[in-house]
Structure formats: structure tokens, C-alpha cells
Amino acid sequence: MASTGSDPGRSRTEPSSAANGGAVRTLSQSELDDELIAKPVVPLRHPGRTVAACIVLLLIAILAYSLVTNKNYEWSTVAHYLFYPRIMQGLRNTLVLTVVSMSIAIVLGIVLASCRLSENKILSMVAGAYLWFFRGTPLLIQLIFWYNLSALYPRLGIGVPFGGDFFFSASTNSVLSLWLVAILGLALHESAYMAEIVRGGLLSVSGHQTEAALALGMNRSVTFRRIILPQALRVIVPPTGNQVIGMLKYSSLVSVIALPDLLYSAQMIYTQTFETIPLLIVVSLWYLLCTTVLTIVQGYIERYYGRGEASRQPARRTWWRPRLGGREQLTTPVAAPAVEQEDNA
């Protein structure tokens, strides 16, 4: 369609210039240009996309139909258990575990990352060994290990190192409650991952920023807190959001030490009632709700730490108006710098 539209323009110029020189020419070059510019643009059609979208919609419709009509989902049972007290208690436990373990892991991760990047070889090596161990062994083993620590050290206390007596001590099992074991296990494991995320973030900030801060007379702590960390956080936040969502779900591993989190609470119910699928749906709905909230929160945090970088981010794409779609969008970025230059002059 577009090619037929441009044909008349060409056929009018060619005979005029080739056959009779300029004598028969009726349209000047600028008039031809104006005519060309005035032509409307016919967008390229994508029939393949339309067909694919229709197939996908059909599949979704089939799935939705089965969700509603298949009695085996037992939606009434799902509704019954959705706010069931034991499920609520489990949800609360999962949230507390996630928040507490993740907070400890983030703080510990920052400390470990600073040690890793330290000029002190001992600190850097010790942090490296910590990462090597806690990333290198499964979380499940670490949890069971902490649970059984009393087999290695029956009593914990403070005293003279290297075989001296304790000034103060207690039995390991009385110190390490179920909750402490769970939080210790999750936080220490997670801190190893967080350390690498934080280190990546810190390395992403140019060394020039440190120099500029030092040249202004800032000390190391102000430089880190005010200049380096806020810039590093822009890089740290997205993978951390990933980790929080991951932690929300794999905190369910604490069921091996019999701590009733969301999943374990549901399991305890369905081993008695055999309503396995409806209860797993209940649990999944709660997990989905939590991750949705976390994703939204992450979006806000990212926007906060991305301030100042807004100009570098691409314009927001929406499905009804793709970026660089029509001609009017193409003209805007061309016009913008011209205005800016006038400002400069």
C-alpha cells in the first residue's frame, strides 16, 4: 500500500527531467518535497501477531472455564481455609521469618562485602571463606546442622579461649530455640548471597566518586554513607527484591525443624483431612499476594534510588503506544535537543 502511494510522485518527476529538460516540469523540487511530507503513513500490519494472540486468548479461556467448572478444585474448601486461624498463624510466621532473616542478611551482607573489598588481606580472605562455605552447602543441611549443634557443642558460653573455663554458660539446646535456629540458618545462608549482591553494587560505583568526595574533605564514613552506598543501592535493590521473594518461599524449608510456617501449617491440616489441592491453592494464593505486594514496594524503592538517572532510562513503553511507533513520536526527540541548545547559548 505504501509503495503505490509513492508511485505517482516518481512518475511525475522522471519524464520532466529526462525527456524535455526543465520545460515541461510543472512541480519544483520543494513542491515535490511538500507533497511527500504531506502523505499519511500507513502502519505495517502484523497478521502473525494477531493470530498468535487469538490462540493464546483461546487457551486462557479454556483454562478459566476448567477452573470454574472442575469440581475437583473444591473452591468452597479453599474459601473455608483462606482465613483459617492456623493458616493465618502460619502466614504470620512466614512473614516474620522473612523480614527478620532478610534484615539480618542485608546488614551482614554489607559487612561481608566491605570485608571482601577491604585492603586488609585477612579480612578479605575470611569473608571469602565465609561465602565459600555458606553458598557452597545446601540451606537444608545448614538448617539441620544448626538444629543439631548441641551434638557438637553441648554447652555455649563466654570464657577464656583455648580450653579455659566458662565464666557464664548455658546448654546449647536452651539457647538455640526453634526460632533462633530457623532465623540463624536462613540469615547466615542468605547473607552470603547478599554479600555478593552488595559487592557488585559497590563495584558499580566509579572510583572517581570516592576521589571527588575525599577531595571535598569527606571522611571515609560520610563518603560511604552519603556518596557510595546511595549510588550502589540503585544496582543492589533489584536483585535484593529477587532475594526477598525467594526467601519468602524457601523459608518453608524450616518445616524440617517443625516450625509451623505457612506451607507447614497447610501440610499439617491436609495430612489429616486429605484436602491437599485446595489447601495448596490457599497457600499459593497467600504467597502470590505477598510477592505482589513486595514487587510493588520494590518498584517504589527502585524509583527512589534511580533518581537522577531518569534521563538515561528509556521512556515508558505501553502496549497501546509503542515507543518510536508513529511519526509524531519520532519527531519529539529530534526537536528536544534544539530547544536545549538555545538554553545553553
Partner: peptide
């Protein structure tokens, strides 16, 4: 840091703090 307050420095690559 106290001594550095006596001097001000301007860098080739500006090194402004981009988040401020």
C-alpha cells in the same frame, strides 16, 4: 580530610554526584 579542606579540586570528568 581536614588538610584537604584547604584545597578544592576540579576533575577532568566532573565527578558530580549523580544521585543529588
Amino acid at each position: 580530610a581536614r588538610q584537604r579542606k584547604l584545597t578544592g579540586m576540579v576533575f577532568q570528568s566532573y565527578n558530580l554526584f549523580p544521585h543529588m
